[in-house]
Write a protein that binds this DNA or RNA. Structure first.
Length: 553
RNA sequence: UGGGGCGUGGCGAAGUGGUCUAACGCACCGGUUUUUGGUAUCGGCACUCCUAGGUUCGAAUCCUAGCGCCCCAGCCA
């Protein structure tokens, strides 16, 4: 199904009437943080359009502010875009690659009387700018001669002035209703080393003075950005029209992705990392691409998710359940099944010979015959899930209870005879019997058993740590009614020790998700060691029983 | 009270004057199947398109007037 949205409609028209011969887009992150799932939407849009229309998409870093940008972020961003499965045209580009040209164009503007050096302080500039409803006033420095401006600007470049002492401003219209047109600052003094240009420069162009021009230099035809830049479009156009740019790019704006129960702004993500509310940019609870990856979420599922989002101009908040659905839908088809018990309850099968072990066949993936089968060891002592036993089961509970019979997956029917408790009254062990006639899980008399339990042989189990995750926030719109930090979910992560895995789970590749039967999808964390595997829960399974319980209570 | 946008079911979103008693996906509700209470499958879920007028034989789609929401006053992007 071919995607249709207003941007693609514009492109089709431009291609049809000859406005555009080859579509060129760009994905333009600022290297001041890691990419998150909102960026995935933009990546998918920009790279996707380039692929669909046989065009090209550049990766271009918007690195005009050395005060905030770092090489670490540049590297991480490149890795994340690759992980998403896209290839940018040629080498990665940087706005800083064009600093020489941008500087020359600034001088052109000055020579044409369309820019001036302003000595006002930041506070004064703000005051002169006016307000949303009141027009601004001209700076007293607005009418300097071109020669004087040129001299001053060159001395700014030469490092003669301190940070903030002077700026270069475009001379447009201090009375404009659009505040971006009230003589915007286009160059400022920042005496900080730049990750790519070192200390070649001590003046840097602002976003507005770099973005459209970079688009033009690269031959970008359709420059796609988010809604908050709509007000900047007149300035984008003014600059492209008043500068000797080699091309005439056009900017189009679409609504960025918002997700409920999440926070996606770079400022807030940075705060979570810096203040230690999470364990870094790739914490599996973070909706960063590196966090999703670490949690075991496949790039295919992320792409599927963003492909289902609307590309429109209306602000929207997407239900994270849609992401969950995409992850489950994909993993259900490809993930192998294994058995693991995360809340172990000991079961002793009294009629099973002491010290004996047998190997039973288990299907690796019922959705994919090619995944084959494996052998799972079975013995007298097992672990089952504590939640799968209730001493006093309610009506609709069809798992194990005193005197009840269930099926052990791929193994035998099992009946509970006796419940053993500790002094505190907690159930700590079950004494059961199995039916040797039901090997493999089929009853010879064809009788039905409703409950099917997963299990792990205690003699063969691998001990592991399992980390469970929930939404990082408890509020649907964190930050709306209280500081977003207060909306942090205290139970967003729970760490379970002494979980029991079937032996085939040894050395499962880091990051590759599989299904723990009846529990969910899990993937080994990089923290895993040979001695102790650590699994992250990638995603739960849909849980109808949990719903029934919730409704009953 | 300046400028720029946006308003279709719980959420996202098709729809561009008649085929709209409004696609599709998610969520939700119910049935069937099932050695995962998973998957699959079947069915339900907007007399109505922010509101009010108007134009028209006919409007979610055109006009007018309201109302609501978002963004902008960084030498951030």
């Amino acid at each position: 199904m071919e995607p249709r949205d207003f941007i693609r409609e514009i492109i089709r028209k431009d291609l049809a009437d000859g406005t555009t011969s080859k579509v060129v887009t760009r994905f333009p992150p600022e290297p001041n943080g890691y990419l998150h799932i909102g960026h995935a939407k933009s990546i998918f849009l920009n790279f996707g359009i380039a692929e669909e229309f046989d065009g090209a998409c550049n990766l271009r870093f918007d690195d005009t502010n050395p005060a905030k940008e770092e090489q670490e972020f540049i590297d991480a961003i490149e890795a994340d875009v690759r992980w998403m499965g896209f290839t940018w045209a040629g080498a990665p580009k940087h706005a800083s690659d064009y600093f020489d040209t941008l500087y020359t164009w600034a001088e052109n503007l000055i020579e044409n009387g369309k820019a001036y050096v302003d000595d006002l302080t930041a506070d004064e500039i703000r005051e002169y700018r006016g307000t949303l409803t009141k027009p601004g006033r001209n700076s007293p420095y607005r009418d300097r001669t071109a020669d004087e401006n040129l001299d001053l600007f060159r001395r700014m470049k030469a490092g003669e002035f301190a940070d903030g002492a002077k700026v270069l401003r475009a001379k447009i219209d201090m009375a404009s209703g659009n505040i971006n047109m009230r003589d915007p600052v286009i160059y400022r003094i920042v005496k900080k080393p730049h990750p790519r240009t070192g200390d070649t420069w001590c003046i840097y162009p602002t976003y507005d003075f770099a973005h459209g021009q970079s688009d033009a230099i690269e031959g970008v035809t359709h420059s796609l950005c988010t809604l908050e830049f709509e007000d900047h479009r007149p300035l984008y156009d003014w600059l492209v029209e008043n500068l000797p740019t080699p091309a005439r790019p056009r900017q189009y704006e679409f609504a960025k992705l918002n997700l409920s129960y999440a926070v996606l702004s770079k400022r807030r993500l940075t705060q979570l990392v810096k203040d230690g509310h999470v364990d870094g940019w790739d914490d599996p609870r973070m909706l960063t691409l590196s966090g999703l990856r670490r949690r075991g979420i496949p790039a295919v599922a992320v792409r599927d998710f963003v492909s289902r989002l609307g590309v429109t101009k209306s602000d929207s908040v997407v239900d994270p359940a849609l992401l969950d659905h995409c992850v489950r839908e994909y993993l259900n088809k490809v993930a192998e099944r294994r058995m693991a018990v995360i809340h172990p309850l000991k079961v002793v099968i009294e009629n099973y010979p002491e010290g004996e072990t047998e190997m039973l066949d288990a299907v690796n993936n019922p959705e994919d015959d090619a995944a084959g089968t494996r052998q799972v060891p079975f013995g007298r002592e097992l672990y089952i899930e504590h939640d799968d036993f209730m001493e006093d089961p309610p009506k609709k509970f069809f798992r194990l209870g005193p005197g009840r019979e269930v099926r052990l997956r791929w193994a035998y029917f099992l009946t509970c005879n006796e419940v053993i408790k500790n002094d505190a009254g907690d159930v700590i062990e079950l004494r059961c019997t199995y039916n040797p006639e039901t090997k493999g899980g089929d009853a010879p008399d064809g009788r039905k058993v409703k409950g099917v339990l997963h299990w792990v042989s205690s003699a063969h189990a691998i001990d592991a740590e399992v980390r469970l995750y929930e939404h990082l926030f408890v509020d649907p719109a964190p930050g709306k009614d209280r500081d977003f930090i207060e909306a942090l979910n205290p139970d967003s992560r729970s760490v379970l020790e002494n979980c029991k895995l079937e032996p085939s789970l040894a050395d499962w590749p880091v990051g590759e998700a599989l299904q723990f039967e009846r529990l969910g999808y899990f993937a080994p964390d990089p923290d895993s060691t040979a001695a102790k595997p650590v699994f992250n829960r990638t995603m739960t399974l849909r849980d109808t029983w949990a719903k029934i319980q919730a409704k009953t209570s």
